[in-house]
């Protein structure tokens, strides 16, 4: 997640002109260094894994705790160290535990390490109230969302305030409790900013989790509510991408410690689904994400990166799941932009 909410980006006003000879020599030197090669490896890392199927006050789900357990097992096999000695499931998925886990990670994670945060459970994105009518959201909740307009909470790519609900959240009846027992877009950004790892990866299997992807200077040609009909790049997409260049500042060195790569199961205005209706033992997105070490190594270099895992899951959902859904029910995972692609897993031979 490239975070805009915590920093101001400095707009570049000029072009650095280097003497051609220096550029040429530097390019040759870097080519030599790159050609020497070394094992890219998988930087040793720490992980925080949360899965909430049982909720105290709202409808429970069936698979997120199993999803988190499976993800935790995969991460341990890949060499990650789990913070909290295991996934935080159901009643253990509280805000106090989350804050404690991130504090522990902040103390342990070295700059050369990787950090991985996974969440499976209920999610929410502002603007989706009409889809929740039984029970409906309260006026107090609507007023709270209105108070967040224009703040850092809406700084994501789609300008939507999004939430991940922990075990005690109760957005329909107790707004203060929900504010306390949920993770908001800017709150997660703030927690990640405290982690010193250069490589930070966030994966969320929750409805509307696309709202957590920051405004990273790239334009997503997949609309916030994918219906399966948009293919390719339109003239409007091209114009929007060009406009973004003019309005978005250059990379700010001060933001370097806050950027993270994010994969969300769905867009800010989309749902993500449990998988039992499709014969899957995990949530739909997590089911395919778990296959990434086996099937997503597109360039066969022995490693699966964020882009490769995302591309595999998105393609699988598009081809195997979305034809079973119609219209607004269709969804696609989303991924954050930025020039750097992190290694997620060592590929596993089938």
């Amino acid at each position: 997640m490239t975070i805009d909410s915590m920093t101001m980006r400095v707009r570049r006003t000029g072009i650095l002109i280097h003497r051609p000879l220096v550029i040429g020599i530097a390019g040759v030197m870097l080519a030599v260094v790159s050609a020497c090669g070394n094992d890219p490896g998988l930087a040793p890392g720490y992980a925080i894994v949360y899965g909430v199927a049982r909720y105290a006050h709202i409808s429970s789900l069936r698979q997120p705790d199993d999803d988190a357990t499976a993800i935790a097992s995969l991460l341990v096999d890949q060499g990650y160290t789990l913070i909290g000695d295991g996934p935080r499931l159901n009643e253990a998925a509280t805000k106090d535990n989350l804050l404690a886990d991130f504090s522990a990670a902040a103390a342990l994670a070295e700059p050369g390490s990787s950090f991985f945060f996974y969440f499976a459970g209920h999610g929410y994105g502002a603007g989706m109230e009409a889809y929740y009518s039984d029970p409906p959201f309260s006026q107090e909740w609507a007023d709270y969302l209105a108070s967040l307009e224009g703040t850092g909470a809406t700084a994501g790519r789609e300008g939507v305030v999004s939430f991940l609900f922990l075990h005690e959240a109760d957005p329909f009846s107790d707004v203060p409790l929900t504010i306390r027992e949920s993770i908001r877009t800017d709150e997660l950004a703030s927690l990640l900013a405290g982690i010193r790892s250069r490589q930070k990866i966030v994966v969320m299997d929750a409805c509307h989790s696309g709202g957590f992807i920051g405004s990273d200077g790239s334009y997503d040609t997949v609309p916030s509510s994918y219906s399966g009909s948009s293919e390719g790049i339109s003239l409007t997409d091209a114009v929007n991408a060009a406009s973004l260049y003019l309005s978005h500042g250059a990379l700010d060195p001060g933001a370097a410690g806050q950027a993270a790569a994010v994969i969300s199961a769905s867009g800010a205005h989309e749902f993500s689904y449990e998988g039992d209706w499709a014969g899957l033992s995990n949530g739909v997105f997590t089911h395919y994400f778990l296959q990434a070490p086996l099937k997503a190594d597109r360039n066969h270099d022995g490693y699966v990166t964020v882009s490769e895992a995302y591309a595999y899951a998105a393609a699988a959902i598009a081809s195997e799941i979305n034809h079973r859904l119609s219209g607004d029910a269709r969804f696609l995972p989303r991924v954050s932009g930025g020039a750097v692609d992190f290694v997620l897993f060592r590929a596993i031979a089938q």
Binding site: S218, Y219, V222, A242, Y245, R298, E308
Partner: peptide, 21 residues
């Protein structure tokens, strides 16, 4: 040069300008 670029394996677009001599 004015370019429109897409990150491989994603649906993400961005643009940039380039000078050459």
């Amino acid at each position: 040069r004015a370019s429109l670029a897409a990150y491989e394996m994603t649906s993400l677009l961005f643009s940039f300008v380039e000078v050459e001599l």
